[in-house]
């Protein structure tokens, strides 16, 4: 059975300036399954930034697991699906640098050799943004109305940082959150060892990397760790939780940066059941 490609959006983007841009939220599989609150935080931030948000119901995954495992054919099919679903929007926004990087950087590369898709891939790529970068670089957001009491430290997830240039945007926005103090993480740009399927293919190496990362986080003395990618966050949260339970120390609260910026920290932190 060939999956049907259907655009959920009928409106085509025109070149005229759009007063209220229509944003298609690409939820990502990890947010969908593990942490829907990140998705809702993204919706809130986007709406507050003057966007009309829609969530195409037929979206699944960006295809990165296949792409990075060498399964180019499946990756290309999934990419084509995603393109069809999202090409009617003014923007595609992703609360993950990794999935955002997949659409923005790798779809064009993946489909470059296919005349029917190359241009469509490039066009979609040009409209796709990582959430925080979109708010800051496209919508010009410089401050948020939010309160979070705690000392936070911030990890720069690799794809967001190196593929999409997300670095100072979250820091600037976090600086406007009341009650928050940012303590920089030494080695903030060093990979946490998640790496998608890497963490299960080479668990010992991955553990060595996340252990170093967790030690660095603990050494900052921060009570909260934020980042912009749920894969990395789950990896670091899982390691921190294990270390805390072995050492009997107090938990580090781990959250997606969108939750704090959206002032939606009612849900327990990642891997916890209470505040």
């Amino acid at each position: 059975m060939t999956p049907k490609f259907e655009s959920e959006s009928s409106r085509l983007v025109t070149d005229s300036p759009v007063s209220k841009p229509r944003v298609g939220l690409f939820v990502t599989c990890l947010v969908d399954l593990f942490r829907p609150s990140v998705g809702f935080a993204a919706v809130k931030l986007l709406e507050e930034a003057g966007c009309e948000v829609e969530v195409p119901g037929l979206q699944t995954c960006c295809g990165q697991p296949a792409f990075n495992s060498g399964d180019r054919a499946d990756a290309a099919t999934i990419a084509q699906r995603t393109i069809v679903l999202f090409e009617g929007f003014d923007y595609v926004v992703v609360p993950s640098g990794s999935c955002g990087g997949m659409i923005r950087e790798h779809y064009p590369e993946l489909l470059a050799g296919d005349p029917a898709w190359a241009e469509r891939a490039r066009t979609l790529a040009g409209r796709t943004w990582e959430l925080i970068s979109f708010l800051y670089d496209v919508r010009g957001l410089r401050q948020v109305k939010a309160r979070y009491d705690g000392t936070i430290t911030y990890h720069d997830s690799c794809s967001g940082l190196r593929e999409l240039g997300v670095k100072q945007q979250p820091r600037t926005l976090l600086a406007s959150v009341q009650g928050t103090k940012l303590k920089e993480l030494p080695g903030a740009e060093t990979c946490c060892g998640f790496g998608g399927t890497f963490c299960v293919k080479y668990p010992e190496i991955s553990d060595k990397m996340v252990e170093g990362k967790a030690e660095d986080i603990l050494a900052t003395g921060a009570d909260t760790l934020l980042a912009g990618d749920l894969g990395c966050l789950m990896n670091m949260a899982g390691k921190l939780k294990r270390m805390h339970s072995e050492r009997g120390t107090r938990a580090t609260r781990v959250r997606h940066v969108a939750e704090v910026l959206a002032d939606m920290t009612g849900e327990p932190p990642i891997g916890e059941t209470g505040q």
Binding site: V27, V31, D32, L33, F34, R35, P36, S37, G39, F40, V55, G57, C199, V200, K201, P203, D207, V210, E211, M234, N235, A237, G238, K239, K241, R242, S245, E267, I270, G271
Partner: peptide, 18 residues
């Protein structure tokens, strides 16, 4: 097991976003 040998696996919040 490859994951949980050395770190916890955070649990989902409960209901999928979609």
């Amino acid at each position: 097991g490859a994951w949980t040998a050395t770190r916890d696996l955070p649990a989902p919040q409960g209901r999928s976003f979609q």
